[in-house]
Every structure is written in structure tokens, then in C-alpha cells.
């Protein structure tokens, strides 16, 4: 066998074993009742909003953005649900999952057994990162899917009247919705990476979860102080609602890309700090 073939096979084995640990990690995440309950709550939010809107039929301009447009087009339930959940509920869900990722294993002692299996510290952080990223996407997708189903059932899905007044067909509207979900997932991953960093800093999962959630809250508070407007564009949460851009006739792609890059930059900084911490930390729990 040629050396390149051997190398390729070894790479394949490594990938296979990485996938094996990743699957185990996902099973662990999803089998946990707490996490399942959080996902269930995420899924129920659009259902509640939809039913409430159906029953009460809000006046124009009432409530959060897009709410008054739901009755005209169920698709807006997706945007409403995401908008109301982004400031607090998504940070809570992802703060819990990301904050628990390493600190949880450290606190019950399984971290020392994983490391002596051995799983290299870099590899463990990579698996944890992939699992948290998957959970992030999953939570955005699940909520949106439920919103879409509930919106379609309660109000019907029609051609989308954009914020500027133009109309796009259902196919294009769904494509834009997918774009919204992708944008939200990337934005939230920037935050979840911060949760992972905090998770490597402590052996107390509750402290890690609370600190992770406060990361988003702190950013939102800073974002609300007008005197700090100079730093607003660089804040973690400042562009989270920027997905509204996708509902305009001419989408400012460059802005969307810029903001997404900011979120990915946050993720990169958080993850490299987490990696530095992970490979140097003494595991004494």
C-alpha cells in the first residue's frame, strides 16, 4: 500500500472515531431531560404566540415586530418567535447547554475519565464545540419549523409582503426564511462559544451556566446605553435582530456578511481562549 493510501486510511479512521465520539456526545445532550425540556419550551413559544394572536387579533403596531402581520401571513410567526426569543430565551437555553459542556463533566468527575481514556484535550473541545453548534442550529431550526407549521395551520402561508411593500412568491419567501435561520444560528453560535469558554474556566456547572447567560444580558445592557453608542456595533448581541435585512426588497448582503463575520470572530476568539485554557488546565476534580 502506498504511503498516501495509508495516510488517507488513518485520516478516515480518525474521522470515524471523531464521529463516534460526536454521536455519543449528541446522545448525551439529547437524552438529558433538562435539555429536552428546554427544546420543548422553545418549540412551544411559537405555538403560544400563534394561538394568542388567533384568539385576540392584535391591533396594528401592537407588541413585538412582525406580530401584527401574522394574521395576514403565517410565515411571520417564524420571525416573531425568533425576535421575542433572541434577547433572553435563546441565551438561556444555549447558556445552559454550553456552560454545562465541560464544567458539567468536571463537576461529576467524568472529565478525568475521558482524558485518561484517552481523549486528547483538543479533540474533546472540538467534539464539545461541534455538539454545542449542532444544538444551536437545532434549537433555531426546531423553533422555526414549529412556527412555520403553526403559522401555516392557523393563518396560512402566502406570498410574502416584504417590509418595503413588494411581494415575493412562497418559494422565495421560504428561501429567505432559511436565510434568517442560518443568520440567527451563526449569531447564536458566537454567544454559545462564549459559554463554552466559561465552561472550561470552572468546575461548577451552575456558575458556568449563569455566567454564560449573563454574557448575553451584559451585552444587551451595554447595547441599551446610548452614551456607549460608539461600541454598540461591536457588541455581541447588537446585530442579532439584523435578520430583518432579509425581509427587504434589496437585501444588503454586505451588511449581513459583515455582521455574520463579527459573530464568527467572537466565536473564534472565545474558542481559541477556551482551547488555551483546556490544554493547560489541571484536572483536579
Amino acid at each position: 500500500m502506498s504511503s498516501s493510501k495509508v495516510a488517507a486510511r488513518q485520516r478516515g479512521l480518525r474521522l470515524g472515531s471523531f464521529a463516534r465520539l460526536y454521536r455519543s456526545e449528541m446522545r448525551l445532550l439529547l437524552a438529558r431531560r433538562r435539555n429536552a425540556a428546554l427544546l420543548a419550551a422553545l418549540v412551544l413559544i411559537p405555538l403560544f404566540i400563534g394561538v394568542a394572536v388567533k384568539v385576540s387579533n392584535p391591533e396594528h403596531g401592537d407588541g413585538p415586530p412582525f406580530l401584527d402581520r401574522i394574521t395576514g401571513n403565517g410565515l411571520f410567526l417564524v420571525f416573531t418567535a425568533l425576535t421575542v426569543s433572541l434577547p433572553f430565551f435563546f441565551p438561556l437555553v444555549l447558556g445552559v447547554v454550553a456552560g454545562d459542556a465541560v464544567a458539567g463533566e468536571a463537576s461529576i468527575g467524568t472529565l478525568r475519565y475521558l482524558l485518561t481514556v484517552p481523549v486528547s484535550r483538543t479533540r474533546l473541545l472540538m467534539v464539545k464545540t461541534c455538539a454545542v453548534a449542532t444544538f444551536t442550529v437545532l434549537s433555531a431550526v426546531l423553533m422555526s419549523a414549529m412556527a412555520l407549521v403553526a403559522g401555516a395551520g392557523l393563518f396560512g402561508v402566502h406570498a410574502l409582503v416584504l417590509l418595503s411593500g413588494d411581494t415575493v412568491g412562497i418559494g422565495a419567501a421560504l428561501l429567505r426564511t432559511a436565510g434568517v435561520i442560518a443568520y440567527v444560528s451563526i449569531a447564536l453560535f458566537g454567544f454559545a462559544a462564549g459559554g463554552l469558554l466559561i465552561s472550561t474556566l470552572t468546575e461548577n456547572p451552575l456558575a458556568a451556566m449563569a455566567s454564560a447567560v449573563s454574557l448575553a444580558i451584559l451585552s444587551a445592557i451595554l447595547d441599551a446605553v446610548p452614551q456607549l453608542s460608539a461600541i454598540h456595533p461591536a457588541l455581541l448581541t447588537d446585530h442579532w435582530l439584523g435578520f430583518g435585512e432579509l425581509l427587504r426588497t434589496s437585501v444588503d448582503t454586505s451588511a449581513l456578511v459583515r455582521w455574520s463575520l463579527l459573530h464568527l470572530a467572537y466565536a473564534a476568539v472565545f474558542l481559541s481562549l477556551a482551547w488555551t485554557r483546556m490544554i493547560t488546565k489541571d484536572v483536579t476534580s
Binding site: 470515524g16 472515531s17 455519543s24 481523549v119
Partner: peptide, 13 residues
């Protein structure tokens, strides 16, 4: 135990 074994990159699934 399944979890521990899955973590072992050198063990045969």
C-alpha cells in the same frame, strides 16, 4: 461504558 468506549479513538467499535 458505551460512552467511555466511544471516546476511545483506538478501540474497535
Amino acid at each position: 461504558l458505551r460512552r467511555l468506549d466511544a471516546a476511545d479513538a483506538t478501540s474497535d467499535p
